[in-house]
Write a protein that binds this DNA or RNA. Sequence first.
DNA 1: TATAAAATTAACGTTTACGTAAACGTTAAT
DNA 2: ATTAACGTTTACGTAAACGTTAATTTTATA
Lengths: 142, 142
Amino acid sequence: MMYQIDEVAKKTGLTKRALRYYEELGLVTPSGRTEGGYRLYTEQDIQQILHLKNLRDLLGISLAEIKELMILEKKYQELKENYFQKNSISERLELLKQLEETLNIQQKQLQEKVEKMTRMIQENNQKLKRIQTKRKELERGV
Amino acid sequence: MMYQIDEVAKKTGLTKRALRYYEELGLVTPSGRTEGGYRLYTEQDIQQILHLKNLRDLLGISLAEIKELMILEKKYQELKENYFQKNSISERLELLKQLEETLNIQQKQLQEKVEKMTRMIQENNQKLKRIQTKRKELERGV
DNA sequence: TATAAAATTAACGTTTACGTAAACGTTAAT
DNA sequence: ATTAACGTTTACGTAAACGTTAATTTTATA
């Protein structure tokens, strides 16, 4: 089953404009079109869009950087699906190394952020406690 | 001891332009100026700037939203420092309630993000494992 | 006191990530 | 066959968050 743009917009929380824009940038291309030219997205397309959204929101990197990433992952998918490889072994090794490196960088970024956020959450909790204490003092004082 | 703009830029990792821009938006105002008009930042100013940077990078909210937040916190600081309060009790209670609410919203945002990021980290780890396995297969095959 | 290094403001420019409107085609249902 | 509700492309617009340049001052130092 395939979905058209409005459905996908609702499912992903992105606007139709954003979906077309991402396609324009070469980030996500719907797998099909109707006879008349309507975009048709598969379930996989939607997963890819959600992944892209995660990268955008969680890593906070630019769409240009995200594009690089998705190109890499696309290559990896192709590699996985091609049993009888056209690529040479050295090419495949090179791709794997690149993917590994990129993922490692991503992991570091994510972990750093998680740590900072965790610290911030703890600080906020302490602040909240102080505020609640103050508030109760005031309320008793009334 | 007070620092001038270039020093602060280096300490915070922001550009001088960004610091001036944030000031223009009313986000962080240096505590002093030299006779000739050079900006002078205190240690506290720097802490505030780092906090602002954290909000920007971790929550990914707009500077306009950050401004609201910092206004609230500023009011709270004033409230803490004024032993002999000018504000009425009801005003103070109102402020505390607002701060509490805002912090709670922030906490939710942060926690949601942390969860999503943690999931992503785990997915990445599994992906990394698969890639490493494949790589070793290839290397043995050579 | 001269001069280099760093600062200031003002104003225009740039990039990113879409929003919006126009003009027009498609699809499904009546 | 019409029509309402969707879609399409093209192209200009816009807000946010700074970058860059120019013209001018300050400040520290030789």
